[in-house]
Design a protein around this nucleic acid. Structure first.
Length: 561
RNA sequence: GCCGCGUUGGUCAAUCGGUUAAGACGCAUCCCUUUCACGGAUGAAUGACGGGUUCGAUUCCCGUACGCGGUACCA
């Protein structure tokens, strides 16, 4: 029986061109999903036959260029990207810069650089261009007004002449204990100055006089708008509780609400993913699709869960990172206005593979328990119906674990440029790449973040400035001192400079003098490395060479004197 | 206040009505290693609460609580 139902669901879904699994828990939802003509269920197609053949999947990431991209933003891109690639569709970057007052220099470049770093290059973007250019809403300004006009002509929107001061006054005047934030809605709009409350003559006069106005959507009083969110299932709203959002601003620019609908339509977007914070304004967008007459082409919506701060609750913010000592932005960002600097995951020493992997697992999993995924594996496995509904607290320890896993698994060649870079920045001179590669293989399992290589590999390139011999000082004696003095000569005469042969010589000498090898190894390590860490001592000696080994022993002895 | 969304160990989470409620991070103990890691083993630790529906609920429904989001000519 269940199989049959599932088959029917699948058939239904494919029939309506949703070539992906939708979270359907049971028959009940299945029923509510059927096109039984719930009055205002405008997301559900009227019938199978009326739908055009499956459209090519097209998704967009539509950020506002107001600053660095943080975790949540990058994850939104990721899910867009994975979904597009999984379905062989297009991934579009559209810059939503409709608020000129919030424009931040460099933010757009930052966004594109982040996408490049993460390996999520858009198919269409302001830079790459594309069949639906331009991809900056500020450059599409002229195209929005006609739709606002169309809405007004059809009675779905109206002119409003209220000044910011008047709006402020309205909010204070109607503010009560029960209603702390009065809205410009069906209850109040007739008390305001707009083309609904004023005579047509006066409206015409104001417009011809050049009095500034905005265009607002006229939200119906008693309607229920519902749609099927790909993650949440059916979500519905009463239109009476939503305010008459501004669609077109005084400066002629659209607000997000108008722009997102118009551009998604014009750019033939099939699936629209955004953060959960957008859910409350979804009814406005749904109604706009309907009023503009585009219901049949409306994208499928998915509202992604939020990424929460590790302690307490609430949306993760840049401040939390500063406060708790971890990055929140993908890459370094300096706000050009305040000069405020924020560290990024990239500069903190994360591999993009790990960063992407970690982000993907924040709110999604494939159900198998697998946690380490390459981008290609993510693309193959990604499925919007397995995205969580609830927000996830960000855990920096787990993030570091992902990076560690990626470093351990990475071949030396992958790590080499980054490690070379951080070693060079730390003042080490790296001239031999194959030597570096050997070193990387030897120490990578001890490195969680890229900068860890400086400490873990630095001594392969320069003798420790001043080896701390403190840990062995207490048990130091003349015999040991003599041992290391003589060891220098023995090593100098050693023909085969390999780890095995050095170890043999060392141990034979210790046995001959009746000193425990263990008591001797730590001092040697301290002399060569400068601290209690690193790979096997004899491997280190073999790698840094005879001259350097003897030199370091000599210096270590001096430090013990 | 109102509207919406959410709620499995400290954290990420599996489970699509029947399990001793997976796994991972972190933590603890042990083994390996006379360094640090890696690796291996073991352990502590979970279904917010109350009602239904059902032979049986973590799972379905309804309340409550709590949390979050929204309530701008910002996105």
């Amino acid at each position: 029986m269940r199989t049959i139902i599932k088959t029917q669901i699948d058939f239904f879904l494919f029939g309506t061109h949703r070539p992906y699994p939708v979270r359907i828990k049971g028959l009940q939802q299945f029923i509510s999903f059927c096109p039984v003509k719930h009055s205002s269920k405008i997301n559900n197609p009227p019938g199978l036959s009326l739908r055009p053949m499956a459209r090519k999947v097209r998704v967009r990431f539509a950020p506002s260029p107001t600053g660095g991209l943080h975790l949540g933003g990058v994850r939104t891109v990721l899910f867009n990207y994975l979904f597009a690639r999984h379905h062989g569709g297009d991934f579009i970057l559209r810059i939503e810069d409709t608020d000129s007052t919030r424009f931040v220099e460099g933010a757009e470049d930052y966004i594109m650089e982040t996408l490049r770093w993460c390996g999520m290059e858009p198919d269409e973007s302001p830079v790459a261009g594309g069949p639906y250019a331009p991809y900056r809403q500020s450059e599409r300004k002229a195209s929005y007004r006609q739709y606002a006009d169309q809405l007004i002509a059809n009675g779905y929107a109206y002119y409003a002449f209220d000044t910011p001061e008047e709006l402020e006054e309205m909010r204070t005047q109607f503010k009560t204990a029960e209603n702390p934030s009065p809205q410009y809605d069906h209850q109040l709009r007739m008390k305001m100055r707009n083309s609904l409350s004023m005579g047509e003559d006066e409206v015409q006069r104001l417009i011809s006089e050049g009095v500034p106005y905005v265009v607002r959507i006229k939200m119906p009083e008693h309607e229920t708008v519902s749609f099927n969110d790909m993650i949440r299932g059916e979500v519905s709203f009463s239109t009476g509780t939503v305010d008459d959002k501004v669609l077109l601003k005084k400066d002629g620019m659209p607000t997000y609400h108008l722009a997102v609908v118009v551009d998604d339509y014009l750019m033939k977007i099939t699936h629209a993913f955004r953060g959960e914070e957008w859910l409350p304004s979804a009814p406005v967008h749904l109604l706009l699709w309907k009023y503009l007459g585009w219901s049949d082409e409306m994208p499928q919506w998915a509202h992604l869960p939020l990424i929460l701060k590790p302690d307490g609750n609430g949306k993760l913010s840049k401040r939390d990172g500063d406060r708790l000592g971890f990055p929140v932005f993908a890459m370094n960002w300096t706000d050009p206005r305040s000069n405020e600097f924020t560290q990024g995951f990239r500069e903190r020493g994360f591999l993009p593979e790990a960063f992407v992997n970690m982000l993907a697992m924040l709110g999604w999993n494939d159900g198998s328990g697998k946690e380490i995924f390459t981008m290609d594996e993510l693309i193959a496995a990604f499925d919007m119906s397995r995205v969580h509904k609830g927000g996830a607290k960000f855990d920096f320890e787990k993030a570091k674990w992902f990076n560690h896993e990626w470093i351990k698994a990475a071949p030396a060649a992958r790590l080499l440029p980054d490690v070379k870079n951080s070693l060079t920045n730390a003042g080490f001179s790296v001239t031999d790449d194959s030597y570096l590669a050997t070193v990387i293989e030897l120490v990578k399992e001890r490195c969680t973040l890229l900068p860890d290589f400086t400490e873990q590999a630095g001594f392969f390139f320069a003798a420790p400035a001043s080896p701390d011999m403190e840990p062995v000082k207490a048990k130091w004696n003349l015999d040991k001192n003599l041992f290391f003095t003589d060891l220098q000569g023995v090593l100098a005469d050693l023909q085969d400079w390999s780890a095995a042969s050095i170890e043999t010589a060392f141990k034979e000498m210790a046995t001959a003098r009746a000193i425990k090898v263990g008591e001797l190894q730590l001092p040697l390590r301290l002399m060569l490395v400068g601290g209690k860490f690193g790979p096997a001592v004899f491997d280190i000696a073999a790698l840094i060479g005879k001259a350097s080994t003897i030199e370091r022993i000599k210096k270590g002895l001096e430090n013990l004197a």
